[in-house]
Amino acid sequence: MGTNEDLHELPDDRAALLLRDAMDRTTADLPPLPDLVGPARAQGRRRKARVRVAVGGGALVVAALALAGVVALPAGGGGPRTGGVTGVAAPPSSTAPPPPVHLEPSPGQSSMADLPAAERTRQEDFQNRAVGVLQGLLPPSVGTVRRTDLSVRLYQGAKDDKAFVIIFSVRPAGPADTGSPCHEARGEVCKKATLPGGIEATATTAPVNDGNVTETRLSFRYGKSKVSLVVSPHDASTTSAPVTNDQLLDLAGSPAFLDLIKSADADPVEEQQRAHPAG
């Protein structure tokens, strides 16, 4: 009898003839039953008929699988293979977030290490979610985004030996947080956009330090919170923040970013900024 591959390559009528011939030869090879009398003879005939049906049925299943081009083989997880592709999809792989950047606190400054264990875990979970969203939405020029262990609002982008400080803050708004007006003074370039839900957002590129580099800032109100995202320059190499106003406004309108903001607005990870009296 030909192989399963031979059957697969033949026309349907030719394959059916081969299958019928194989079934006849298989049942013909069965040993003859003894010549019994009476009920025993009838029982023997029924038994031979059942054996022939079982053998023929098995041959029919194999041939049908060959005609369909499917061969049941154990494949890792046990799924059948069709056309060389495993029929059962592998579970999606999960990528662990990169470890945090360690920053030593200044004298008198606290860090996340000083938080109660439950609160520290809650803030780290938010940071890890934020890293995933920012990594996916910021341009590749910002590099690899990592959280820091100093503050829930501090992150870092790194590319080509250049580190860009990222401040991402969602804190309860105070009385002085009245919106995000555009100010284009001292070389600043400002742009506004309306986000889903009618939210007005402002993005600004502004010179900092000696004026030879720029940082890019995004700000808007969401619910009860003031949202800000700042990408700073790399001072040592005199490299400005590698992100534009338009890119930050596009990021702000992303459903993933707004979902992250929504969760922080409902369950703040920062305290409301306190006003410091002058003098």
Rank of each mutant, 00 (worst) to 15 (best):
residue 217 R to T: 15
residue 223 G to R: 10
residue 212 N to H: 12
residue 231 V to R: 02
residue 210 D to A: 14
residue 237 S to D: 09
residue 230 V to G: 02
residue 258 L to P: 01
residue 235 D to N: 03
residue 208 V to T: 12
residue 214 T to A: 12
residue 202 T to C: 05
residue 235 D to P: 00
residue 260 L to Q: 05
residue 199 I to L: 15
residue 247 Q to G: 04
residue 202 T to V: 09
residue 250 D to F: 00
residue 228 S to I: 15
residue 256 A to V: 03
residue 234 H to L: 01
residue 215 E to G: 14
residue 256 A to Q: 13
residue 215 E to D: 15
residue 213 V to K: 03
residue 236 A to R: 09
residue 223 G to Q: 12
residue 233 P to M: 09
residue 207 P to F: 07
residue 204 T to H: 05
residue 214 T to M: 07
residue 255 P to K: 06
residue 215 E to T: 14
residue 205 T to N: 11
residue 237 S to E: 08
residue 207 P to C: 08
residue 251 L to D: 04
residue 207 P to T: 11
residue 253 G to L: 07
residue 249 L to K: 06
residue 207 P to G: 12
residue 201 A to K: 01
residue 213 V to T: 13
residue 231 V to S: 04
residue 245 N to K: 01
residue 251 L to W: 01
residue 259 D to S: 06
residue 206 A to D: 15
residue 233 P to Q: 07
residue 259 D to T: 02
residue 207 P to H: 10
residue 241 A to T: 04
residue 206 A to F: 14
residue 237 S to L: 07
residue 204 T to Q: 13
residue 255 P to I: 11
residue 251 L to Y: 02
residue 240 S to M: 04
residue 201 A to R: 04
residue 211 G to W: 05
residue 225 S to C: 11
residue 211 G to V: 12
residue 251 L to V: 03
residue 256 A to E: 13
residue 220 F to S: 13
residue 251 L to F: 02
residue 259 D to P: 03
residue 219 S to E: 15
residue 198 G to T: 09
residue 225 S to Y: 10
residue 204 T to E: 12
residue 209 N to K: 08
residue 204 T to K: 07
residue 250 D to P: 00
residue 233 P to A: 12
residue 228 S to F: 15
residue 232 S to Y: 11
residue 231 V to H: 01
residue 202 T to A: 11
residue 253 G to V: 03
residue 234 H to K: 02
residue 232 S to T: 12
residue 243 V to A: 03
residue 241 A to N: 09
residue 220 F to Q: 08
residue 237 S to N: 06
residue 259 D to Q: 05
residue 223 G to M: 12
residue 225 S to W: 12
residue 209 N to A: 11
residue 229 L to N: 01
residue 202 T to W: 01
residue 216 T to W: 10
residue 260 L to W: 04
residue 209 N to C: 11
residue 224 K to V: 06
residue 249 L to N: 04
residue 221 R to F: 06
residue 255 P to F: 10
residue 237 S to G: 11
residue 222 Y to N: 11
residue 220 F to D: 08
residue 253 G to H: 03
residue 259 D to K: 00
residue 253 G to I: 03
residue 219 S to C: 06
residue 203 A to F: 08
residue 207 P to K: 09
residue 198 G to H: 09
residue 249 L to P: 06
residue 238 T to Q: 10
residue 229 L to D: 02
residue 255 P to C: 13
residue 208 V to F: 04
residue 256 A to S: 12
